[in-house]
Amino acid sequence: MKNKLFEKYFVFSPYFWLVLFFFIPLAIIFKISISVSEWGMPPYQDIFLFDNGFKINTTFENYVYIFSDYYYIGSFVNSLILALISTFFCLLIGFPLAFYIATSNIRLRNILLVLVVIPFWSSFLLRVYAWKIILQNNGILNVILLNLGIISEPLQLLYNQYAVIMGIVYTYLPLMILPLYGYLNKFDLNLIEASKDLGLNRIKTFFKVILPLSVPGIVAGSLLVFIPVVGEFIIPEMLGGSDRLYYGKILWEEFFVNRNWPGASALAFSGIIILVLPIVIFQILYSRWSQKNEI
C-alpha cells in the first residue's frame, strides 16, 4: 500500500536525524571517556589499534580519576545541593501561586497564567544579568536597605552562592509553576469544600486533600527544575563567586582550560547516567503504561 511508504518517510526522516546528530554524539562522548589520554591533537588515543594485529585500547582510568578526586565529586555534590535548595524554593514560591491561579475564575486565570509565563520568553541571559544590576553594591536592593536604616553600609550581595540561588529560583520559577498549574487545574475544587464541611480545618485540608492530589505536578515541576540546574553553567558564572565550584564549571574548565577531553567526557557521561537515564526510563515506562491503559 501507498500508506506504508508514506509512514516510513514520516518515521524515518526524524529518526535518521536524531540517530546521526544526537545518538552518535552521545556514543562519541562515551567512546572518548574510555580512551587513553595523551598529549597531542586530539588529546586521546584511538580505542582500536591495528599496528600489531587488532587490539582494543580502552581504559576506565578517566572515571577512576574523577571519582577519586574530591575536586570533582565535591563540585558534583555542590551542584546537587544547589539544585535541591533551588527546587525547594521554587516549590515554596510556585505552589501558592499556581494554586491561587488555578482557583481563580476562568478569565482571570488565563490572564494570570500568561503573565506568569511571559517572563520566561524573554532572554534567559538578560534575566540573569538583571539580577547582577539589582545586587550590585550600589544597586537598588542595597540602596533600599540603606535608606530604611536596616544596614549601615552596603552588603556584598553578588558573587556568592546566595546570589546564585536567587538567580536560579527567579529564572526557573515558571518551569515549576506550569506543571503544578496543569495538575491543580484538573482537580475538583468541591473536594476542598467537602473537606471543610466534614470539619477539617485549613491546615488539615491542605495536608490531607490538596497536597496528596498535587503530587504528580510537584514531581513533574521539580524534575524540570532540578535536572537542568545541576548542569547550570551561566548563572554561577555571572552571579557566583569563588566560594563554591559547580559541576557545570568544572566540566567547562576540564575541556576548555585543561584540555582533558577524556576527563571531560567521563564527567559528562557520568552526569547522563546519574541524572538523565533514570528519568528517561521512567518516562518510557510511563508512556507505555498509559498507552496500555487507554487502548
Binding site: P14, Y15, L18, V19, F22, F23, P25, L26, I28, I29, L223, L224, I227, P228, V230, G231, E232, F233, G248, L251, W252, F255, A264, S265, A268, G271, I272, L275, V276, I279, V280, Q283, I284, S287
Partner: peptide, 18 residues
Amino acid sequence: IFLSSTPLVLPELILGLS
C-alpha cells in the same frame, strides 16, 4: 521515544560537548 524526549532534559552543557 528516548531520542525524541531526552534533549528536553539533557543539560545543555553535555549536549554542547557531545
